[in-house]
């Protein structure tokens, strides 16, 4: 069984630890440091985050998306044809993103996340997975001034992200994950979504994962089992109905169990976590289960996120029958 995360991690700790990244960005804004100096700090913070992930006992980590301003623009800024607009609420969270506006054909120019991925691998004690926002979610949360159809736009993003995924694969990524929360909100778009999934994974030899969160898969399950991913992660916190879906139709892929609440500070106990893993993973080969929080952890204060990861790892070991 693999204890892992979905992607993002809080960028700054609380007092007495210094908020280094926040301070560095402020200094850059005031012209007191250079972009290179900010990059240096972002790298150091990433190393710190990789260390926290490893210390918590995770088996598979990410770079915490420390350099990502939000889940939409980090990729969108790197693509041709997209400009960045005003702030808008990200789903029903208290976080905001700058809305990408598609002005011309979406084109991949050069690697966007490969440098970050390689940096993380170089500094991580644990295996690292590459995480990208999926093509449908990128399309759904953008303003479309060019394609005038979400299916065409999602396909265009899929084509571009496929290039990015190939570049990650060339850099050694053995697991590439696509986060697609938007499809749970707009299930009527399933056909467009499925087409984009096909395009984005086309020709990849690395393992691929799809993470769906902020809701349940009712209405698109078991269809999602036909999508070309090796692993699908589901949110059992905001989507408690997922449990019944799995009972109705057995899960045939590697399963991502999102069972720690990534959006609330209430701490789960390792006992409860282990119990949930046993119930939800019943009948599935433990080697095919990835356990994680329900979504990226950036909704939480850093210290709470870290404590949740410790408990997650401890619950996973308990479910495996490993003595604490």
């Amino acid at each position: 069984m693999i204890a892992t995360v979905v992607g993002s991690y809080p960028k700054i700790p609380n007092k007495p630890r210094p908020a280094r990244l926040r301070n560095a960005i402020n200094k850059l804004d005031r012209g007191q440091i250079t972009q290179e100096e900010l990059d240096q700090v972002a790298g150091e913070v990433t190393i710190e985050v990789l260390q926290e992930h490893a210390d918590a006992g995770l088996d598979l980590v990410t770079d915490g998306q420390i350099r990502w301003d939000d889940e939409q623009t980090y990729l969108a800024r790197g693509l041709e044809g997209v400009s960045i607009g005003g702030l808008i609420r990200w789903f029903d969270t208290n976080m905001y993103y700058r809305q990408p506006a598609v002005e011309a054909a979406v084109t991949w120019r050069e690697p966007i996340t490969v440098r970050d991925y390689s940096f993380a691998v170089e500094h991580s004690a644990k295996p690292v997975k590459a995480v990208l926002t999926g093509p449908y979610t990128l399309a759904r949360l953008s303003v479309d001034h060019h394609y005038h159809a979400v299916d065409a736009l999602a396909l265009a993003f899929a084509e571009a992200l496929n290039q990015e995924a190939r570049a990650l694969q060339d850099a050694g990524a053995s697991l590439i994950q696509f986060n697609e929360p938007a499809i749970l909100r707009f299930k009527d778009d399933y056909t467009a979504f499925a087409a984009a999934c096909g395009r984005v994974t086309d020709g990849l030899s690395a393992e691929t994962a799809l993470y769906l969160y902020f809701g349940d898969a009712e209405g698109i399950y078991p269809q999602i089992l036909d999508l070309p991913f090796d692993l699908i992660g589901l949110d059992f916190v905001m989507g408690p109905q997922n449990e019944a879906l799995l009972k109705r139709t057995p899960f045939t892929k590697k399963l991502g169990l999102g069972i720690i609440d990534a959006r609330n500070t209430r701490l789960e106990s390792p006992d409860d976590i282990a119990g949930k893993i046993r119930t939800l993973g019943d009948g599935i080969d433990p080697d095919r289960i990835h356990v994680s929080p329900s979504a990226g952890l950036e909704f939480l204060p850093r210290e709470v996120a870290q404590e949740k990861l410790r408990r997650l790892a401890s619950g996973v070991r308990q479910a495996e029958g490993v003595p604490a």
Partner: peptide, 17 residues
Amino acid sequence: VGGLVRSYGNRYYHKPI
């Protein structure tokens, strides 16, 4: 009043509990 949580860009606030 809880720890710092980012709302956007480089803006953070103390989200209450």
